[in-house]
């Protein structure tokens, strides 16, 4: 499968945090022919191992997606909503959603027409408490089909843009799962010493939970977390954003300095462009938990710049995606047992 076809397919699959079984099954099937062992653990983490005699390296990109959950059903049949991960309520009006009730149901999130708003209302942003899903059914029918706790998934539409860009929901972080897929494909023809574990992790969006149990299970010597970061958009602060056209290697107290240097050297040797970001505290990615698993894991963070994070039009550069696969594969091939003696040199 081409990396972009992988991304197109995986972003469509239901996998809200805490209920990733379907998307885990997809990843398991796609990764299986490319690795030696594959398991899905109790938290729905997919753990693909490509064996080697050397140190254990764990790569982690999360496969869960943000979405909504039914928290109450009103007497008029409206579904009130809670968050699964950080969905911004401002993007919701006008959305088409799928409610996973007793059967999948199409619904819409509307908005009060501007004609009916007061001047005061117009100045306000949408709040989640004021929004609801309209299925078109009356209360009795809704009660038959929908229960509190049912998941609500945002709309999937893959939009190919000009200049090598594309937009789709859940690039955060399935674009990075696609990068792992690409790396695994490339590694079929590259010799590697390290014992490689590619983990598509669960429940990142609700607190990096999947990676905790996966890292305990794998017990790695080195960690590489992959996640998305912000690309430049009009009005966004420059110091927090990056160019769309290359990957970012973050630095900061949660990132192992020598392992990061090794990563930048691999990039340089292979002519892969790499930007730098400074993260002064926790990274809010799998890297944080991977780094403190068991007795501690030297960990680096590799990030894919994305426009419009946590919307249904998360936008990335296709070439950056492919280069990500190449960098990951080359890094995996470069890891050697000597690295363990060089960690604080």
């Amino acid at each position: 499968m081409h990396i972009e076809d992988f991304l197109r397919e995986i972003t469509a699959i239901r996998g809200l945090s805490g209920d990733e079984a379907l998307v885990s099954a997809f990843v398991k099937e796609a990764f299986a022919p490319l690795c030696d062992e594959i398991t899905v653990d109790k938290m729905n983490n997919v753990i693909a191992r490509k064996k080697g005699p050397g140190p254990k390296v764990m790569f982690s990109a999360h496969l869960d997606e943000i979405g909504l959950m039914v928290v109450d059903i009103e007497k008029d049949g409206c579904l009130r909503l809670g968050n699964v991960g950080g969905v911004d309520p401002r993007i919701l009006p006008g959305q088409r959603v799928t409610v996973y009730g007793r059967e999948p149901l199409l619904g819409i999130i509307g908005a009060k027409p501007p004609h009916l708003l007061t001047d005061e209302d117009r100045k306000k942003n949408y709040l989640r408490e004021d929004l609801y899903v309209d299925l078109g059914f009356p209360y009795e029918k809704v009660k038959e089909l929908v229960q509190i706790g049912d998941q609500v998934q945002l709309e999937h539409r893959y939009v190919e843009l000009k200049n090598d860009q594309a937009a789709v929901k859940t690039c955060d972080d399935r674009a990075c799962v696609a990068i792992m897929y690409q790396a695994l494909k490339l590694l079929q023809n590259i010799r590697h010493e390290a014992d490689l574990y590619f983990v598509a992790s669960s429940q990142e969006e609700v607190g990096c939970r999947g990676v905790m149990t996966a890292a305990f299970g794998v017990d790695p010597d080195f960690g590489v977390a992959l996640d998305v970061c912000h690309a430049a958009t009009p009005g966004a602060p420059g110091w927090r954003t990056h160019k769309l056209d290359s990957l970012v290697a973050s630095m900061g107290p949660y990132i192992h300095p020598v392992l990061r240097r090794k990563l930048t050297e691999v990039a340089k040797d292979n002519n892969i462009a790499l930007q730098t970001a400074v993260v002064p505290r926790n990274t809010s990615t799998d890297a944080d938990e991977l780094g403190r698993a068991r007795a501690g894991v030297p960990t680096v963070l590799l990030e894919l710049p994305l426009k419009y994070m946590h919307t249904t039009v998360e936008t990335f550069n296709r070439n950056t995606l492919k280069e990500g696969g190449r960098l990951l594969a080359q890094f995996a091939a470069a890891v050697s047992a000597e690295w363990e003696d060089e960690l604080w040199t």
């Binding site: 653990d41 109790k42 938290m43 983490n45 939970r209 905790m212 149990t213 996966a214 305990f216 299970g217």
Partner: peptide
């Protein structure tokens, strides 16, 4: 749930 390698 998050103990060791995960507990249902």
């Amino acid at each position: 749930q998050l103990s060791r390698a995960g507990v249902p």
